[in-house]
Each structure stands twice: as C-alpha cells, then as structure tokens.
Amino acid sequence: MNEVKITVDGATHAVPEGITVVQAMWHIGREMMHDVGCLGGACGACAISVRFPGRFDNQCYLACQTPVEHGMTIAFMPSDASKKEIAPLPRTEPAEQVLFQYYPETRRCVGCRSCSMVCPVGIDVMGGVRAAIAGLHQDVADRFTNCVMCGLCAAVCGAGIRPHRVGAYTRRLTGAFYEKEATQLLERINEIASGEYQDEWNTLLSSELSDAREEVLNECT
C-alpha cells in the first residue's frame, strides 16, 4: 500500500494512502475523544486546520471526511464553547428585526469573507450573513441547511458575528412561521383526537394478531 507523510503536532508520520485524517490518528497511535463525534460529517466535532507545503493559507475540513494527503500539516480545532444567546422563538409572526434583537452584531459585517473561507462544509457563510442583514430569511435558511455548528465562522469573525447561530436561529424562524399550513398534518391530528380510527383499532387489537398473520399481511399489500 502506498504511504503519504503527514505532520501532526510537529511530528511527521507515514500513513496509508486513502484513509481519512481520523483514521490516520488511530494509525499513528492516538486515542481520540475530544476531536471525534459522529464520524459521518454531521456533528462538527472534528474540525481541523490544514497547511500544505508551498502555500501560505490554511484550509479547514472535517477530519472524518477528509482523506490524508501527502505533506499535510494538521491541527485539530477546539469545539465551539461559546455561550449561546437565550433566543426563544417569538409567539407570533416575527418582525423582520427579531434576529437583530438577539444577534445585533450581525449588521457589523465588513464583507471580509473569512467566515466562508474557513467553513469545513463549504457554506457561503458570508452570503448567508449578508442575506440576514437584507432580511432574506428563506435565503439564509437555505444556505445553512448543512451547517454542522462547529462555529469556526464565529471564531474568525473580526466583527464578533456568530454566523452559525444566525443561521440556526433564522432556520428556526423560517420553519416555525412557514407561510403555508401543512393542512393534511393538522387534519390527521384532528382525526386521531376525535377517535376516527377507534373501530379499526378495536378490531385489530382484539384479534390475536399472531394467528391472523396472513390477514394482516394481505391488508398491507
């Protein structure tokens, strides 16, 4: 198997090609606890900052989703430990400004794009922040669909904006005050509450289902 060389905490290691950075950590004998979570690219625990030879900039990735590459120098980023704003949803249709009540600094964005540069899941974070400033909630919500809440965007923001929180809160506003009702859902809830299925349940649960196997199966098909 081909090997590639990676550098972690100053030491260089040869690891098999084709494995992820997390798998490489196990390969070089590291116990993992703080820097690993779901292993499926969804929890945001394993954010890393990576440098490559000959490049001056850093790239950020999720270690469980990133194959090792020759020459990588890797540092694991600490989890977002910032205290979250207590930001409940309003009870009634929100004013456009409700977001800024909890996240007023959002409007201080200077357009440096640092947040977009560090996002390990490739969100155009700054685009989301600008959309939030413009009051385009649906646009913000769409952009942050796959946000894993690692908080790297907030860590690099010179204006103190917390884009991941802005995204999450705007998504909640958008979901809770969706413009159209899910009428079928509401009807079904009413049907169940009014006992519409009671006769069917009575018949079904009174018979010995294990003896009525074929009957049940036929009913399904």
């Binding site: 949803l89 909640r172 979901g175 899910a182 859902l185 809830i189």
Partner: peptide, 21 residues
Amino acid sequence: PSVVKWLIDNGVMFDREEDGN
C-alpha cells in the same frame, strides 16, 4: 403527527410541497 407538529412549531424545516403540505 402531533410530535411532527411540535417539531414544526419549534422551527424544524421539513421539505414541503407547493401547497404547504
């Protein structure tokens, strides 16, 4: 169904059809 309603009320963005369902 009730628990889905609770989730929507708490801001979960389920995919919708044109008519809102």
